[in-house]
Every structure is written in C-alpha cells, then in structure tokens.
Amino acid sequence: MSYEAHIDASACAAHGDCEAIAPEIFRVDDVAVVIAVGPDELMLEAARTCPTVAIRVTDQATGEQIFP
C-alpha cells in the first residue's frame, strides 16, 4: 500500500479499463477518479492498460514516479 494513483483528467477519455481492472481503486463516469488506495500491482496494471496513459503512479513515501 505504498503507491498512489493520479489521474490526468484532460488526458482521460473514460475508456473504463482502470475500473474494469481495479474497481476498488478507480471509478469512471465521464472521467476517471481515484476512490481509494489498493494493491500496488493492481494500480500499476491499470495504469499500464490505460489507452490514453492518463494514470500516473507514484511512491507515496518518496514521491518517486513509478509509471509512466
């Protein structure tokens, strides 16, 4: 539980892939929002799958960017 997800709302096209992969972390209406923290690996998989690469994942403790 050390990663954090950030959505670039201007890049998000609401494909919904992140919610399909990690419904406990993301909710997608006409734009995706982060609703809770969740397992790091799930968060990363959602970020990697996003067709518009609108999800940035950082390490909560260090602020280091993990993806992209």
Partner: peptide, 9 residues
C-alpha cells in the same frame, strides 16, 4: 511505447 504518450501529448 505507451509510456511515451504523456510526453507526446
């Protein structure tokens, strides 16, 4: 190269 998309945008 999906990781390059934000940069390209």
């Amino acid at each position: 190269r999906p990781h390059m998309l934000p940069e390209a945008r």
